[in-house]
């Protein structure tokens, strides 16, 4: 199927200029390369502008509760392991209200993909500071001096929490992002794709991201090397940073052969 066939008939209501269009474009391209049947794929989201994406795609979709995309995606994957499960949402959805789920999803290493569309702001609720907002961003009346808190570091935290695939893409490069999403889907285990996805309505300065983003393909399986890189980089590196497949949850177990229950009930 061509990428266009993975778009639903529902037209996005995102603002013109929004980076999320590019993420939708990249997802449809990745699914097309995989020749994925729409019924073999589930897109799961929470709440936010970004979380509207499943409605715009031709696949199963679950537009759930704010911050809870990952537990829903985990449940779907565990119940239906053959499905390609892609969770997604914004920086508010994933790192504020859903922050705890993010840590444990990385740790648990279920075979799903998580795409975080980071615009460093709560877009849907009209431009409040989020966990990734720069310390001195003073555009919101709620934080007139900026949040004055150090931004959350999604990739470092994913690494520390045990994610086995970590990459960062940019909405200005939908073809490069499609490749990353394709690789994330192919990766066995929890694959985290952090996308710098601009919101030019509330953060017009983000239109300059295109000039700031730079390629930095550091594919390593060594967590120390990845951690050192992530501590040093400027947040605008683009590439696959870490890939280290490990046991995927849930582990396969044989049912106990000699349990008392079995012995007692067996005919």
């Amino acid at each position: 199927m061509k990428p266009k066939a993975y778009k639903s008939g529902v037209k996005p209501i995102w603002c013109p200029g929004c980076g999320h269009y590019s993420v939708l474009n990249a997802i449809t391209k990745a699914l097309s390369v995989l020749d994925q049947q729409p019924e073999d794929c589930v897109l799961v989201s929470g709440i936010g502008c970004s979380a509207r994406l499943p409605a715009y795609a031709n696949a199963y979709g679950f537009h759930g509760v704010h911050g809870r995309a990952l537990p829903v995606a985990t449940g779907i994957k565990v119940a239906r392991p053959k499905l390609n499960v892609i969770a997604m949402g914004g920086d508010g959805d994933g790192f504020s209200i859903g922050g705890n789920h993010f840590l444990h999803a990385c740790r648990r290493n279920v075979d799903i993909v998580y795409i975080a569309m980071d615009n460093e702001v709560y877009g849907m609720t009209k431009g409040q500071a989020s966990p990734t907002t720069p310390e001195l961003w003073d555009h919101s009346k709620l934080t007139p001096h900026g949040p004055e808190v150090r931004p959350f570091q999604p990739c470092s935290i994913a690494l520390a929490s045990g994610a086995s695939f970590i990459a960062r893409g940019h909405s200005g490069d939908p073809n490069g992002l499609a490749k990353m999403i394709y690789e994330a889907i192919e990766h066995p285990g929890f694959a985290f794709v952090h996308v710098l996805s601009q919101c030019i309505t509330y953060c017009p300065e983000q239109s300059e991201w295109k000039e700031r983003v730079h390629d930095e393909e550091v594919v390593t399986a060594d967590p120390t090397e990845a951690a050192t890189f992530l501590q040093r980089e400027d947040g605008f590196s683009k590439g696959v940073f870490y890939r280290n497949p490990r046991d995927v949850w849930p582990m396969p177990h044989q049912p106990p052969q000699d349990s008392n229950l079995r012995k007692g009930f067996e005919l």
């Binding site: 990428p3 603002c15 013109p16 200029g17 929004c18 980076g19 269009y21 590019s22 474009n25 391209k29 097309s32 390369v33 909405s171 200005g172 490069d173 939908p174 073809n175 490069g176 499609a178 490749k179 394709y182 601009q198 030019i200 309505t201 239109s207 295109k210």
Partner: peptide, 26 residues
């Protein structure tokens, strides 16, 4: 060809208006 195998001079096909250059007040 996979989308990332095209040899465009830039990040996208040359006749695409980039998403980020649009604005509702364009």
């Amino acid at each position: 060809l996979k989308p990332w195998e095209y040899q465009w001079p830039d990040l996208e096909a040359p006749e695409n208006i980039s998403y980020e250059s649009a604005h509702y007040l364009m």
